[in-house]
Simulated assay, not measured.
Amino acid sequence: MSNLYFHYPFCRQACHYCNFHFSTSLKNKVNLWDAMKKELILREKEISLPIESIYFGGGSPSLLRPKEIKDLIQLIKLHFKLEDHLEVTLEVNPDDVTAAYLSGLKKAGINRLSLGIQSFNDKDLLLMNRAHNSTQSLNALELISKTFTNYSLDLIYGMPYSSLAEWEENLETALGFNPPHISAYALTVEEKTALYHNIKKGEVVLLSEEAVEKQYQLMVQKLESLGFINYEFSNFGKPDFFSLNNQNYWNGKSYLGIGPAAHSFDGINIRKWNVSNNQLYLNSIKKGKLPFEEEELTVKDRYNEYLMTGLRTTHGISLLHV
């Protein structure tokens, strides 16, 4: 089985911790979306297996209109084989969620949402420079929980100045909506981000590793006691609600990444990555050229990746493969 991933590289504003490729200038978003559809067709022959997961990430793909998503899904159906149990996930920001938007997404073919909450604490959201506030998060979750059966929410633990009690309150708030899936990530400081520079200037102080570990252990204990399975280090799902997209990555299956900075893997030994520049990407696609670099993984590379990804999951690794 294969995955399709679409990297939509636009955001309304820059989160201080994010080092993904994105632009806060939206002037080229229509042209770039058209270019992504052209890239998809140009790379049609790179996928021979049926697709079981389509994932829209970014960036902020909830800036897309439902019609734009519907048109793309129709294009995919024309050019690729799809599994009956196809999972189609869209990452959404709380400030983009309305009842009308969710209804449009369902009609477009989206059957799973990943909601970028990060925190229900406005102090954390301000430090991260998120575009939404806690009230918008609660409203979005209320609407999504009534509209979608399959959805996930993202949380970040280890936030500067956060206490164990505040983190527990975050978890309790999330669990109050009975979500089927939660992804939770430790705050990571990446170079060339505003957070990195704020820490260097002494304006932000990180938690100790011990404090971060306590937050993680509290989360694992609480979620597992409620029937969540920690199927991958950062992902917790109820039975039958594990993310196909996530599982396929960790299991080394093939995936095709479309859009600036998107990565692809043939499931064997070829990895490709698109240029991380919107204008260069547009110029290349206009000429009918694919804007990626590639590498051939050695046997050692493959073993290292197998160990790195397998040890993150509940199924672990097999000594027969080592």
Rank of each mutant, 00 (worst) to 15 (best):
N31Y: 13
E210A: 01
E224N: 09
I156W: 02
L4A: 04
N93R: 01
Q217F: 02
R271H: 14
I270F: 00
N246R: 10
Q217C: 11
Y185G: 14
L72M: 04
R43F: 03
E190D: 13
T188W: 00
P61C: 11
L187K: 00
F6C: 10
S53T: 12
I182Q: 03
L32D: 06
E295W: 01
F242G: 04
E169W: 11
S264V: 02
G59N: 07
L113K: 13
E294C: 05
A165C: 13
G104C: 05
A108V: 07
R112Y: 05
I268Y: 12
K146D: 02
L90I: 08
V205Y: 01
H132S: 08
L113Y: 03
I47F: 05
Q217H: 12
E87C: 03
K272Q: 06
Y196S: 10
T313N: 04
L141F: 02
N269P: 14
Y161L: 14
L311I: 07
K106S: 14
L32N: 06
L141H: 04
L244I: 09
L155S: 13
N198V: 04
I76R: 04
K106V: 06
F10W: 13
F241E: 05
D84E: 15
W33R: 02
P61T: 06
E305P: 13
E44A: 13
D124V: 01
R302F: 00
P94V: 02
A186Q: 14
P160I: 09
D154P: 09
L127H: 09
L63D: 12
S264W: 04
D154M: 01
E295P: 12
H181A: 09
N93Y: 01
D96E: 13
N150V: 07
S264C: 03
E83L: 06
K37Y: 02
N93H: 03
E295I: 14
K300L: 03
F236V: 07
L141V: 04
L63I: 10
T24Q: 07
L42Y: 05
H315W: 05
K107I: 15
P61Q: 04
L319K: 08
Y161D: 15
I268S: 14
W33Q: 04
L105M: 12
F292L: 01
D154Y: 02
Y196P: 11
R271A: 15
L125D: 08
L244N: 09
T313I: 05
W167I: 01
G104F: 03
E224P: 11
F56S: 12
E142K: 10
L126P: 05
P239V: 11
Q136C: 15
I41K: 00
V97R: 06
V189S: 08
C15I: 08
N3R: 11
Y55E: 07
S114T: 13
I117K: 11
E46R: 15
A211V: 08
H197I: 00
D240S: 14
S134C: 11
E190F: 05
Q221R: 05
F228C: 10
N277Y: 02
N251P: 12
I268R: 15
